[in-house]
């Protein structure tokens, strides 16, 4: 074999090796690149996957003066107030076979949370004053239905204040002072 042929064959082998090496390295690097891409796609999926929160909503029954819990699962929205609103919807809607201590026609106008004071403010429409049935019992049932449920389920809320059409009220029907915020009274709950 002539030297030329040998050099040619060696050169071809070197070129083949280099090309194979390049191909190998490229495939390896592309595989490496694929990994974070895959991870990224996975993390994107995680963000999109909704988170849920388990809640205990306490309702009154005809037989007992203590509220009993009903379990719910709510989707965790990005804004905290939205979660409170969803929770409020559950309270206003009520539950079958349980008593809802809210007169018909009463709706929530707005809700806001003051973080510095750990205070939740619930503002109802005027129907609350117009239609509320008089009595110490009715007032206490209404007040602690909201206060206990919110404070029990959301630890950041330590007190709840009520207003009607944006204004503070003295009492609902002449009994309980409504000008100050309410702290929870878990004596109304039975956690079974």
């Amino acid at each position: 074999m002539s030297k030329k042929i040998i050099y040619g064959l060696v050169g071809a082998a070197v070129v083949f090796f280099i090309i194979s090496l390049i191909i190998f390295l490229q495939s390896d690097s592309s595989a490496e690149k694929a990994k974070p891409a895959e991870a990224q796609s996975k993390s994107v999926e995680k963000v999109e996957e909704p988170e849920f929160i388990n809640l205990k909503v306490f309702f009154y029954t005809e037989r007992s003066r203590y509220m009993r819990p009903v379990l719910y699962e709510l989707e965790f929205p990005p804004i905290r107030e939205d979660l409170y609103l969803k929770f409020m919807d559950l309270l206003l809607k009520g539950e079958e076979n349980y008593i809802k201590p809210i007169p018909e026609g009463v709706t929530l106008r707005s809700l806001y949370y003051i973080e510095d004071e750990n205070l939740l403010v619930l503002d109802f429409n005027e129907e609350l004053i117009i239609k509320f049935p008089a009595g110490t019992g009715t007032e206490l049932e209404f007040i602690y239905f909201f206060v206990d449920n919110f404070c029990y389920n959301f630890k950041e809320i330590k007190k709840v204040m009520f207003s009607v059409a944006g204004n503070n009220i003295k009492t609902l029907t002449g009994h309980i002072d409504m000008e100050n915020p309410f702290y929870p009274n878990y004596g109304y709950l039975i956690d079974q």
Binding site: Y60, T61, E62, R63, R65, I99, K100, P101, P133, A134, G135, T136, G137, T138, E141, F142, H175
Partner: peptide, 11 residues
Amino acid sequence: IHVNGSFRKAA
């Protein structure tokens, strides 16, 4: 002196 009222009739 007061007379009570409740959302629960059995109260």
